[in-house]
């Protein structure tokens, strides 16, 4: 099963259906613990790729390797067909791979605009910007309002509100907006609703759906199987550091996925054949 990466590589062709992000034969071990044993993953434009697996299956490690937080022992990553190597999360981010973490990655006391632009503030033109390093607060606020509106986060009305005055779902929406707003190519969401209540999770799921429909490819890690079955086009099941199966929610049941995940059932489809 671990050798199917070769086949998948062969099927890689340029064109509209070419994957935006591909990881090939990813290996990673921590001391004697092998977390990834040759994982292959493709993400296509406009799809949500679900990523599930039991604890220790290698989900987090895979995501860390793709997003530059960890360096894989071996394996290659292709972004839009180009081989890329990331030395740190910032490099991955600059290349267009954004990660939304389960812990709310926003500064609670800063307002929404400051959070959206944190680390990429816009300065004013002229000497006020170059000499006095003055921020262009007005432009940032206007663009932030537009971005929030275009993402359909209707419940956010005041862009100058401190994030801590927002509900958990709205806060996560701000984190998602920040990740999606700046020309990112792939959005990775690591259990974005794990810290949220049922209703707030629903808000975030809606946001994911609208992002998917706008064409942004998303890798979604979640333990919330019903939500995954709702949102994902394909679900990759990791088990013991390998892709055990890739299922299409339209054709497979959640029970099947759980069975494969836990090893109770061997995968009926070989991985890489898209269900």
């Amino acid at each position: 099963m671990a050798t199917t990466g070769e086949e998948a590589l062969g099927t890689e062709q340029p064109g509209p259906s070419a994957p935006v992000l591909s990881a090939r034969d990813m290996w990673k071990s921590y001391g004697r613990v092998v977390a990834l044993r040759g994982v292959d993953i493709d993400v296509y434009p406009g799809e949500v790729l679900g990523l599930v697996g039991d604890n220790g299956a290698g989900k987090s490690t895979l995501i860390k390797c793709i997003s530059g937080a960890e360096y894989p022992d071996s394996g290659t990553i292709f972004l839009e067909g180009q081989e890329v190597v990331f030395h740190g999360p910032l490099a991955a981010r600059h290349a267009g791979i954004e990660v939304v973490h389960q812990t709310l990655g926003v500064a609670p006391q800063l307002d929404i605009t400051s959070n959206l632009y944190l680390g990429r503030e816009v300065r004013r033109g002229g000497f006020r910007g170059s000499v006095f390093r003055m921020l262009d607060v007005r432009t940032m606020r206007r663009q932030a309002a537009e971005k929030v509106k275009s993402l359909g986060i209707a419940t956010i009305q005041d862009i100058t509100q401190a994030v801590e005055t927002l509900s958990g779902g709205q806060r996560q929406a701000v984190a998602v907006a920040r990740a999606a707003a700046f020309g990112s190519k792939v959005l990775i969401m690591d259990e974005p609703t794990a810290a949220l209540g049922v209703r707030e999770s629903g808000q975030v799921h809606q946001l994911i759906a609208s992002l998917r429909d706008s064409g942004l490819p998303i890798i979604l890690i979640s333990h919330n199987m019903p939500a995954l079955w709702d949102l994902a086009n394909r679900v990759a099941i990791l088990r013991l550091g390998r892709v055990a199966a890739i299922l299409a929610p339209a054709e497979s049941s959640m029970e099947e996925a759980v069975a494969i995940m836990t090893g109770a059932k061997a995968a009926s489809h070989p991985p890489g054949t898209n269900g």
Binding site: P89, L90, R93, V99, H101, T103, L104, G105, V106, A107, P108, Q109, L110, S114, L118, G119, R120, E121, R123, F132, R133, M134, L135, V137, R178
Partner: peptide
């Protein structure tokens, strides 16, 4: 007061004190 309120460095001072991890994730 100007530096804190009107420059990126000032914003980052707040962000770092507010949530170190969020600031790091934002690339500061």
């Amino acid at each position: 007061a100007y530096v804190l309120a009107w420059t990126a460095w000032g914003r980052h001072v707040y962000a770092v004190g507010d949530d170190l991890n969020a600031a790091r994730l934002a690339g500061i």
